[in-house]
Write a protein that binds this DNA or RNA. Sequence first.
DNA 1: AATGAATGAGCCTTCATTCAT
DNA 2: GATGAATGAAGGCTCATTCAT
Lengths: 194, 194, 194, 194
Amino acid sequence: MSSDERGRRDEILEAALKCFLEKGYDATTINDIRERSGASTGSIYHAFSGKDAIAAELLAGTLDHWQRTLLARLERETTAEGLVRGAVEHFVDWVAQAPDRARFLFHSPRARLESAAQEGLQARNAELLVALKAMFRPHVKARALRALPTSLLLPIIVGPAMEWARTWLAGRSPTGPAEARRVLADAAWAALRA
Amino acid sequence: MSSDERGRRDEILEAALKCFLEKGYDATTINDIRERSGASTGSIYHAFSGKDAIAAELLAGTLDHWQRTLLARLERETTAEGLVRGAVEHFVDWVAQAPDRARFLFHSPRARLESAAQEGLQARNAELLVALKAMFRPHVKARALRALPTSLLLPIIVGPAMEWARTWLAGRSPTGPAEARRVLADAAWAALRA
Amino acid sequence: MSSDERGRRDEILEAALKCFLEKGYDATTINDIRERSGASTGSIYHAFSGKDAIAAELLAGTLDHWQRTLLARLERETTAEGLVRGAVEHFVDWVAQAPDRARFLFHSPRARLESAAQEGLQARNAELLVALKAMFRPHVKARALRALPTSLLLPIIVGPAMEWARTWLAGRSPTGPAEARRVLADAAWAALRA
Amino acid sequence: MSSDERGRRDEILEAALKCFLEKGYDATTINDIRERSGASTGSIYHAFSGKDAIAAELLAGTLDHWQRTLLARLERETTAEGLVRGAVEHFVDWVAQAPDRARFLFHSPRARLESAAQEGLQARNAELLVALKAMFRPHVKARALRALPTSLLLPIIVGPAMEWARTWLAGRSPTGPAEARRVLADAAWAALRA
DNA sequence: AATGAATGAGCCTTCATTCAT
DNA sequence: GATGAATGAAGGCTCATTCAT
């Protein structure tokens, strides 16, 4: 598959992603995307229904990839510790492997974009939460995990990794992914084990 | 600076904050702020140099308040546990007491606004980080806290509280501030104690 | 009242009228109006909510003037002949005195514009029809006018004058208003007298 | 020109007519016509040189049909009364039989379309006028018709029928074609007989 | 200081038309 | 001949900002 065949849609998506990262969603104009993608204005509107739709598709693709890889990563874990460490490690690894997508995820106005996204997106988001809670709940019940509201589980597991990611993606953290994944996994497990 | 002028500025700031929360920074127009504040267009430009400046002042004031109250809260703590719990509790309390400001902080395009803010803002932000690290470092050295890069300390302490705050402010967390502050403080301390 | 004080609104209306006459409503752009009126784009939108509103105001003003002068002209008539001739003569005179407004009335997409106009417009239009029918009906009943559906009265009275006006306004009729008013009034009266 | 090609052209013309009637000429897009006709964009441009050309062909065909049927209808008339009544009756009948074409004729921007039409169109239009005047002039000279400028003949004959048609086609006339043709023919003859 | 009419650059989007396949 | 992706000029409109009063 030559780069010619990569398709206009992908070129536009890629260009849009870069623009969104540099200037933010609102500040990015169709013209910015046009210049960067090489597509004409009309081409962009031939491929997408509007600026919303471009961002929504980026968001959907990004969330989708994150969700699928996260679930795949956690599927093989059977212990509470494996789940907790796995979730943290996956987050850090994912951010390290796709820093642009991660930055986009952190800085896009998700609330607004999600309503513009395909219907499935919000549903799938909710499904993920349900699936994760289902994975963790048995271990809470079995007292392998500290007793706490399930709604605080994910914040405790993922929150530190997100904060690290924000500073690291902004180039303001001296601690790289390799060290972060180890330390943050330790910390999360220490915070949650019974 | 007469108290009249203060009043006018504050009315505008307050109106702008509400608009920013409802529609987002970019989607808010000067006209929105004009209608809500009762000030004329000219008045707004007499009091502020532009839309950026209004948001920047809001941002600076908000960060300032957060920083000052945080430092005040931590000053009286001498133990590692006190510092860790204090930081978490302060964050949750602050969000609970000023949810609008918190929402604004989370959803405004900080990167853009900070460059528009008074020069001091970014410097003060860095100063805070330095001050916090200075408070915690002795306890790391004294092995009261787990040995880890100081750049991961704050993520571990504040990350979970931020994630909780995001969902709670969006009305999607069943767990309120009272319970969150307790559980999250426990978790943070468990994660960090040596 | 100097021409300066004539007001932006009027300048814009006048410029728009000329544009609409030259190119038609749809083909006229805001930019055309801008160039012709000397107002800036923003000024036009400060004075009117959009292109529709400009045309709607022109339409409303034109119809209003026509209706008021027509009713005033017919008020003093008491005989059937006076009414019939009066209506025809008024039409021809009005077209001759305000040919631009008349052209606009004939060639604008009235159906579309009326829905954009102030609510009152359509109502007043209907009122006029009712008023006219009320003026004529007694004479039909008194057999001073041929018995025919009232819905055909106005077509018979005004139809020929409109056709004449269309060709004359297009510069394609050798017959001017003075002769037309006489001949058409004669014809209308001959067509309708019992 | 194969019958296939004829079919394609006709499908496009038919689809375009419906679109023009529903949304007006300017508001109708090639895409609208594409969807309705089932032809591809390219096909439409293969069959017609552009949007103008489609409307112009519709206009030319419509005018052509009207002119041919009118002349055929009047050819057999030898008296002044027959001509006058015949012209009115033909107009009403034609509108009743092809209301869509009639609506199109009344609401399309004829001035613009005529310049886009085949050169013949305007010429033929003028020819018709000449032919009609030639038919009527002998009767004026023979004093079977009231003495009046020939340029007012057609307005008096056709004007009322056009006004009736406008309101009837807009669904706002309680008087249908059967009654209108009779009453309007009577009125026209009464208006014109010597 | 206050006002709000005026400004005009710039935005998103549409759409007639072209042209490679 | 047919197709539909691509084009890009142009349109209506918004809005931060200025400035005469």
